[in-house]
Design a binder for these strands. Sequence first.
DNA 1: GGATAATCGAGACGGTACGTCGCGTCTTCAT
DNA 2: ATGAAGACGCGACGTACCGTCTCGATTATCC
Lengths: 225, 225, 225, 225
Amino acid sequence: MKSPPDVKNRRPSPDRPRGRPRSLEARRAILKATHELLAEGGLSSVTIEGIAARAGVGKPTIYRTWPNAHAVAMAALMESDDSGESAAAMSRRTAEPAPKPNERPSSALTALRAQLHEIARVFSAALGRCVTLMIAASEQDTELSKAFRNQFVLARRNEGRAFLAAAMSNGEIRRDLDIDVALDLIYAPVFYRLLMGHAPLTSRFIDDVLNLALQGISTTARRKP
Amino acid sequence: MKSPPDVKNRRPSPDRPRGRPRSLEARRAILKATHELLAEGGLSSVTIEGIAARAGVGKPTIYRTWPNAHAVAMAALMESDDSGESAAAMSRRTAEPAPKPNERPSSALTALRAQLHEIARVFSAALGRCVTLMIAASEQDTELSKAFRNQFVLARRNEGRAFLAAAMSNGEIRRDLDIDVALDLIYAPVFYRLLMGHAPLTSRFIDDVLNLALQGISTTARRKP
Amino acid sequence: MKSPPDVKNRRPSPDRPRGRPRSLEARRAILKATHELLAEGGLSSVTIEGIAARAGVGKPTIYRTWPNAHAVAMAALMESDDSGESAAAMSRRTAEPAPKPNERPSSALTALRAQLHEIARVFSAALGRCVTLMIAASEQDTELSKAFRNQFVLARRNEGRAFLAAAMSNGEIRRDLDIDVALDLIYAPVFYRLLMGHAPLTSRFIDDVLNLALQGISTTARRKP
Amino acid sequence: MKSPPDVKNRRPSPDRPRGRPRSLEARRAILKATHELLAEGGLSSVTIEGIAARAGVGKPTIYRTWPNAHAVAMAALMESDDSGESAAAMSRRTAEPAPKPNERPSSALTALRAQLHEIARVFSAALGRCVTLMIAASEQDTELSKAFRNQFVLARRNEGRAFLAAAMSNGEIRRDLDIDVALDLIYAPVFYRLLMGHAPLTSRFIDDVLNLALQGISTTARRKP
DNA sequence: GGATAATCGAGACGGTACGTCGCGTCTTCAT
DNA sequence: ATGAAGACGCGACGTACCGTCTCGATTATCC
């Protein structure tokens, strides 16, 4: 900000531990350490003291940025969230034909199905369980909590909402649908199985859920004699 | 040390524990105190020391029976579970006509709807949130955890399974249905909204979910021209 | 052992208590266990629970006889006290000539010297330290405490008193002597070194102490005709 | 910041501990509380929890400095030791003529006598008993234990050694004396009576002990020219 | 012989204190 | 004037023993 306008992110010399550009480095170390702790021992092993020790950082440095260990964990998970890829990419990867309910599905419904599989994949992993748990356990009104929920749940939900809207506009699903209800109908069972653990979260199950939901909300279901 | 080898027919009564039996009174006081703490401050205010102090009990007395505060909370919630009433009773209480999808529903579907409303009511309360949270947060493999999940989730789920079976047998829902998937489709959205908090869990929502699910799984949906 | 029912410890006294008599066997097991614990871990490892567990005995059985662990330890040490042998026996065993102050000593002083060596030997052992510690640490007014002190300290002291009286009567020591002070002068240094640990308690030291006590440390004492 | 390599005479001070230094205030509060507890209830009423509560301090703050309650008690007694005054001061205060053995004593022996009386006075008090007990009960090899013994026993003993050396150099006591033995002969009876409690520790007794130690108890010692 | 009674083992009870861990705040020093 | 290091007051943890109190079973004496 003073004489050199670009001093900040200067990192051509890796041996520059001279001054104190430690801040960014510290942040990264903190999030990395937290991520490792999460992966190793789950949410309950994330403590401020543990993070500070592993990151080689003072506790106040952590508290300067986050209010508690929960928040650091959230930040670490958000930072490392690799699931931001587009639904197209997901659709491409999981290029399965997918069991069709009764008609050939549009690309919108195909993408929705792919997204569901992707969600199941991500959240079945160890860190995914942490995410779900943290959403469930967090106070619902903090800023970070909302951001977290937004990134991990609502972003996908909005993507799904777009899929449904597309499907609606091309006549694949009913026009009188309450999309929020429909979205819950589709996404909820995945998390339900994850959390309750009463039955495994298989790929088959996801297809079944979607088929069942579709037969309810699709226009084909409305056909009456 | 009498060496005479006269083996008495001393029956060791291997089933009955030796020593002073555990105090029912203490157990009750502990669970009552825990229940109060849960209701007042939520899951995080349930500490062994707090329970012991409020129940007028020593900490070791608690640890003798439960391994940690989480387990005591589970036990307290299970003990005080007043939701064991029959679906008939629930149906009677919530004697609403319920918005019908498109036909007059059988008593089975009516009971299912009543049960869903009841579940939403119970789990929306403060203690209900605790229950959900504890299910989500608990290690899945302990004995108590399984019992807890069984009592609060699977018991209702089994009741629901009976409803669906009845509805299936009288032709209201499709015979080719995977009931486990259908059950998740119906119950999951309730808990999803509870945990995620992205939208309120209204009575209207429950009806909507059920209607939507029914239109997917009911035979009327299969009618094609 | 079993056929004669009266051999055991049947007392003819009609005021014998009603119920089941206390088990001698249990008492022995308790004292044995306590003794082992004392030898293994010192005074601090003697706990009622530890004794009960090792002796295969219920805790109330211990409390029925002794008021606390300290008392059991005292009893165990008193029971196992092998130092009750006569000074004559000791004198016989440690038949050393002993460095004489300036004259040939009477048998009384020889016996005193032998007793001092014996005391040092016994109290230098692990259990001896326990004894000293317990005397020092015990409340001074209990019955058991007095008995303990009496057995381990005063009995020897009284023996020593007899030695000094004999020596006095045959003119070896001064007649105007306060024997209690003289006894303390002789016995105290042994325990002092044991407890303070500032210097080792050697056999040489004991001889030196006795010689010095006999002769005095002032130059005036050495003058001879 | 980096061009001038050592503008300041910054010493690396590798010995100085990093981080926040320990609070002198807390330390003082802890020792004060411990001292009060010792005075009120003796050694057994010194508990970490009690100290923490009375000092308004957290338990870890205590454990950060001392390993157990015993050590805190030692530190408290050492800190509050008011007996460091010189023997001259003691001699001045207790300006008694002192019963002379047979000659007018030198100032060295007078000072020794005064010191003995002072020791008896200090150790007869409640806290003095604690000190003796703790010396007796403590493991002998810890650092603190040695320091404690050094302060309370050996310091006085060294003073006494100086007295004896002075008396020896001016011909009052024998030159062939083993001073360590002589010191034990003089100091031991005081502590012996304190610990054993078989007889009171009177002022008279102290004089008697000193006289007897000086003269010896044997008849041969009384011969004068 | 049957009732009575004290003892036995076992172990749960209400407690106290232990020594540890983590919290979130603070203070100090080095950069 | 920021950041690491770490001590602080605090609160809860889970454990070890305390000394007391049931339990059912086991011996003895007395009626």
